[in-house]
């Protein structure tokens, strides 16, 4: 049975070709043990391996799968950052993105700034879907997708684990605290990817080589008419509280009596 506000069969039709904007962030690779500067000025990023934020890579994979399935005819990757971001945009091109745009920010990028950039690009590019990861694994903010949707007045579907494309709407299943929730959102919409949306492919060498020759379009906050948000100031970055090593016990009985003595059982 079709849900209210949608039509039968809407989610399986294969007529309308779409355009997707995929937002990717360059972040310290998830396998790296981060180090914090002794003076509290932040996490050390120089000389550290960077990659596409893993959740954004899932978004990228999803967009390319739609393209391969003939549901989407153009995928545009965008990243905000210094020239080093070109590496991650080349990864996006190697995945199969048609175009890549780098937006030079000139300074640190707050989620609200990023959202303003994506909203401005949405005006220029008119995508049907803006897709990105649910959060970046560096600042762990998880704000940019929702903020982009708000600025555009678009629907949002965060933490997506499955997405079915319809003619004028998408049916998104979201990972929520106690299970799954399914929403219909009219297009255009912002969708953010959770871990289980897909497993990104391994890139093939010829695709990586071909991507090196492609052009990355350049833009900037000024060119897009975006004012950066600089209202929050990080004054210090410190390591978290360290857990002290505990004791080994030799039997389940000792364990239970220790926990009872501490009032934990």
């Amino acid at each position: 049975m079709a849900p209210a506000g949608t039509r039968d069969g809407q989610f399986n039709c294969e007529t309308n070709m779409m355009k997707v904007l995929v937002c990717i962030k360059r972040a310290i690779d998830y396998n790296v043990h981060i180090r914090i500067a002794d003076d509290g000025s932040g996490v050390i990023t120089d000389g550290v391996k960077h990659s596409v934020n893993p959740f954004d890579e899932i978004a990228l994979e999803q967009a390319i799968r739609w393209k391969e399935a003939g549901r989407v005819d153009e995928v545009v990757a965008v990243s905000i950052g210094a020239a080093s971001c070109d590496d991650q945009l080349r990864t996006a091109l190697a995945f199969g993105c048609d175009r890549a745009i780098r937006v030079e920010p000139g300074a640190a990028v707050a989620p609200l700034t990023a959202a303003r950039v994506f909203a401005a690009l949405a005006d220029a590019e008119a995508p049907d879907i803006i897709l990105m990861g649910k959060q970046a694994i560096d600042d762990d903010n998880g704000q940019t997708g929702q903020m982009t949707a708000a600025l555009l007045g678009w629907p949002q579907a965060t933490f997506a684990s499955t997405i079915e494309l319809g003619e004028s709407a998408a049916r998104v299943t979201r990972e929520i605290d106690n299970g799954l929730e399914t929403l219909d959102v009219d297009l255009p919409a912002v969708i953010t990817a959770d871990l289980r949306l897909n497993e990104p492919r391994y890139l093939k060498l010829p695709n990586i080589m071909k991507a090196k020759k492609k052009t990355i379009e350049q833009s900037s906050l000024e060119a897009l008419g975006v004012t950066p948000d600089i209202s929050l100031r990080v004054t210090r970055t410190t390591p978290p509280r360290v857990r002290r090593p505990g004791i080994m016990v030799d039997s389940p009985e000792t364990l239970v009596s220790e926990l009872k003595n501490k009032g934990l059982l």
Binding site: L112, Q143, A150, R174, D177
Partner: peptide, 23 residues
Amino acid sequence: NTSFGKDVMPRVAALLGVAMLTD
């Protein structure tokens, strides 16, 4: 910082035109 709070609060912040603190 539940799935509802994480979903809605950034939308509220952007509609107000202000930054947000997560967690």
